[in-house]
Design a protein around this nucleic acid. Structure first.
Length: 841
DNA sequence: AGCACGCCGACT
DNA sequence: GTCGGCGTGCTC
């Protein structure tokens, strides 16, 4: 450290050179920020550690930053400011992550600050909270208003208060910012920033017997002594029943959660208090990990012959491939294979990451994994509180969690020794982040991540993304296929129901074909369960006047409003706008305002009429908003004697019910005809996944009924035959003919502005410039998207196609970014927003 | 992103 | 005459 003798000898030693740090700040500005490292901090500061810095004009903000680089070159153009605090003694962000951040910013055309913002749970970013305190040097009381004078007397007694706290003190209805401004002006108070860690470890109060009573004899003496104090004796006995220290005296040191001991009665509380006072018990606090240690027994997993062969084959292919695709039909028992591979990787001492789509994670799969891995497994999920996410992050740093199951964002966890990454349901589009940048695809990021850490990647799906299967066919990925259902369960019998014919025969009852109604009835009689799938929530998607054709539309978006019967309102599914249901047509006054089309709510309604005695549940965004609603519905469906579950696509993912033998699918045609080059692939995936919910138990074949007006469609035939490969071959040919992924990369540019002409103008100019540089075959548009206006912003899309290997993608992206920046700084095109979505889906 | 600075309408 | 609306520009 500071050594006087040494400094005498050194002419220009490093201690004398000012150290600068290039920092990643959580703001969307495409560069790092250079700060000075204060003298005493230089030895302490590591790359990857978090620091607190002042930021903005007049240091108006306080931000958490990450050290990306340390150096000695002072910036020439400005005076660097000082770092104010170091938050981490050791890097919180690993070198691999910094590399990942840089790569993502470049690849996904965003800033490194945006990556940091999404990567770190907000509990690891500091909150800067303004605090107000009485100014001890205040001496102009004559300036104060009467109200302020009264308030100040109170304030004098208090420690520093936050804005909110001051507001409460001043009373309801006070204009707090104005009050503070006034008080600050009169120098009556001081305002300052208090920096604190947002993350608060959870503390648990525990008790244990005093050391004196750990010996068996002493304990007996104690119990003897308490003979006359039955209440106290009972408390000790209760403690001993939870902590069997007769067998193992060391258990006492771990103690017992205080709340367990005095659950119900207040009497035991006072008895306990006395025992603590008399030093029979002692209390202590420990930091409680937020994930309860359930000491789960290590369940032995037995693989079937097919599973074992798949597992062996995957391991063999890992010898020569970094990525292997496990293509296994629904219900083939991929999870057991995963578990087997995870165990092998963990035994080898490396970390494992298991990615699941958001919804699938909340379900049975986690329970199954927990039974095997117990508290060694971390769970990273958006439904968890921020503190819990920080816990997992720190647990990965400390080595507590070698294995994490998580959603998309868990690719950002600070792994440094990954051996295996599993991406389950690899085709799921929810792996692609849409809204805030970085618009990343977790599957692709996982592959990069694994590449840097020399880890292996296993992609799993019953219906792989076309891109993925193509890579496997090209030999760039390994491929293992599982075509047998677990425990010899058979695949469901999938049948098409011709709704056009039933309509002609007048045998349709509302949305239900006679075939479906009969099957539902028969299924109920057998006390078996059914699932109905309609990928549309609400009661009906349109409300229309029969006389003048007026339809209810959103004021802010170019979409029709959906009628929600339960809340008796019209809702926009894009901006959340709500309206009352009109009694008469707003345009012509007619009373013949009808609903058109149907969603899950309407199906539920009609079902209840057809089957008055049945128990029906609905699962969609509207019924799963509450915290645990999702699990509750699943639980109720499993155990609550429910006959029918009606749901949107969220029922397609990862649910595993034994007693479901019928699946009904509505409006398959709408899925198939969706105007998008991926519509066929999507339909196949979605319909196959829903179908897979039927008949997962061995010895009984499930039935799937797909209602369609056009049973001849080739894709429906493929679904019936479970012919993924046939679909792949047909579809890949189309993709090649029209040059779509996997034969090219797509970048979608979306231009938005409240003024349609300005939006159009910016889009035209951008498209023209890009066409000039890239050629017209690579630039499509601009064109209005299907929904041309959202939240009062007019949208235009430009699609850029870059063929693989032929184009310097890096350079093209940089060029596109330049053109975008040109437009954004053009005086005439102010406040247009342009968003680039790389590898858009 | 968020915050300050700066230039035009309804109010003590 | 001021408070405050939000357009514009910058952040080490």
């Amino acid at each position: 450290m500071e050594n006087a003798d040494l400094s005498l000898f050194s002419t220009l030693d490093t201690d004398e050179v000012t150290v600068f740090a290039d920092l990643i700040l959580p703001i969307p500005v495409p560069r790092l920020f250079t700060y000075r490292v204060p003298r005493g901090m230089t030895d302490l500061l590591r790359i990857g550690a978090r620091v607190i810095v002042p930021f903005g004009k007049k240091n108006s903000r306080v931000l958490t930053a990450i050290v990306a680089k340390l150096h000695n070159s002072p910036p020439t153009a400005y005076q660097a400011r000082y770092i104010s605090e170091v938050l981490d003694e050791y890097p919180l962000v690993t070198g691999y992550q910094l590399e990942l951040f840089r790569w993502m910013a470049e690849y996904y055309m965003c800033t490194i600050g945006e990556v940091m913002n999404i990567a770190l749970p907000s509990g690891l970013k500091i909150s800067s909270q303004s605090k107000v305190q009485y100014n001890p040097d205040f001496d102009y009381p004559e300036l104060l208003t009467e109200f302020e004078a009264v308030l100040l007397v109170e304030l004098k007694k208090q420690p520093a208060l936050s804005y909110d706290e001051l507001g409460r003190l001043a009373g309801e209805g006070t204009n707090v910012p104005a009050l503070i401004k006034s008080l600050v002006g009169k120098q009556a108070v001081i305002v300052f920033e208090e920096v604190k860690e947002k993350y608060i470890p959870k503390m648990v109060r525990k008790i244990r017997l005093h050391r004196n009573y750990e010996e068996r004899e002493q304990l007996l003496v104690l119990l003897q002594r308490l003979e006359k104090l039955p209440k106290q004796q009972e408390v000790v006995m209760r403690y001993l029943s939870h902590v069997p220290m007769q067998r193992n005296p060391e258990l006492n040191q771990k103690g017992l959660d205080k709340t367990i001991l005095n659950q119900d009665d207040e009497l035991s509380q006072s008895s306990l208090a006395t025992l603590v006072k008399n030093q029979v018990f002692e209390t202590f606090e420990v930091i409680q990990p937020r994930f309860a240690d359930d000491h789960a027994p290590q369940v032995e997993i037995r693989l079937t012959e097919h599973q074992q062969r798949a597992s062996d084959s995957i391991m063999a292919q890992f010898e020569s491939q970094n990525v292997v695709l496990l293509h296994g039909i629904t219900g083939s028992g991929k999870t057991e294979v995963y578990i087997n591979l995870i165990q092998q990787a963990l035994a080898g001492g490396s970390q494992v990451l298991y990615l699941l789509p958001e919804i699938a994670l909340t379900t049975q799969i986690v329970v199954r994994l927990q039974r095997v891995f117990g508290d060694k497994m971390g769970i990273y999920h958006s439904k968890f509180s921020d503190n819990e996410r920080v816990e997992v992050w720190k647990g990965v740093v400390s080595g507590r969690y070698q294995f994490v199951v998580g959603v998309r964002s868990s690719v950002f966890l600070p792994f440094d020794n990954l051996g295996l990454v599993i991406v389950d349901e690899e085709h799921e589009t929810s792996y692609k982040q849409h809204d805030p940048a970085p618009r990343y695809h977790a599957r692709d990021v996982a592959i990069m991540l694994a590449h840097w850490q020399q880890a292996k990647v296993l992609l799993g799906s019953a219906t792989p993304a076309l891109e993925t299967y193509y890579q496997a066919k090209q030999g760039r990925y390994g491929l293992v296929e599982l075509f047998n259902r677990f425990g010899n369960a058979t695949l469901p019998d999938i049948r098409l129901v011709d709704t056009k014919r039933e309509k002609q025969q007048k045998s349709m009852k509302q949305e239900f074909s006679s075939v479906l109604l009969e099957s539902l009835g028969a299924n109920m009689d057998r006390r078996e369960q059914s699932i109905l799938f309609q990928n549309r929530r609400g009661y009906s998607p349109y409300m229309q006047c029969e006389d003048c054709d007026w339809t209810a539309e959103c004021d802010n978006c170019a979409v029709s409003l959906t009628y929600h019967q339960r809340d008796a309102e019209l809702r926009c599914h894009y901006c959340g706008h709500k309206e009352q249901v009109p009694r008469t047509c707003p345009a012509c006054g007619s009373t013949k305002v009808k609903t058109i089309g149907f969603g899950t709510e309407k199906l539920e309604d009609q079902l209840q009429i057809f089957f008055p005695d049945s128990k029906i549940l609905r699962m969609d965004l509207d019924t799963t908003r509450a915290k645990n609603a999702y699990q509750q519905i699943i639980q109720e469906f499993e155990t609550g004697g429910i006959d029918i579950l009606v749901g949107t696509q969220m029922i397609t993912k990862g649910l595993d019910f034994d007693n479901v033998s019928l699946v009904g699918i509505f409006d398959a045609d709408r899925l198939i005809r969706f105007p998008d080059f991926r519509a066929t692939e999507r339909s196949f995936q979605m319909l196959t996944q829903v179908s897979g919910r039927a008949g997962r138990r061995a010895g009984r074949q499930g039935t799937v009924l797909i209602q369609t007006a056009n049973p001849q469609q080739s894709i429906l035939q493929k679904i019936i035959q479970n012919d993924y490969i046939g679909l792949y071959e047909e579809e890949i040919q189309e993709r090649q003919n029209f040059n779509y992924p996997p034969f090219c990369r797509l970048i979608k540019l979306t231009i938005r502005h409240t003024d349609k002409r300005i939006s159009q103008q910016a889009a035209d100019r951008l498209a023209a410039e890009l066409t000039d540089a890239l050629g017209s075959s690579r630039v499509l548009g601009p064109e209005e998207p299907l929904i041309e206006r959202i939240r009062n912003q007019f949208l235009f899309d430009i699609l850029i196609k870059l063929e693989r290997d032929k184009v310097n993608v890096k350079a093209v992206k940089a060029y596109i970014q330049d053109r975008i920046n040109d437009i954004l700084t053009d005086k005439g095109l102010r406040q247009v927003s342009i968003v680039a979505d790389v590898d858009c889906l």
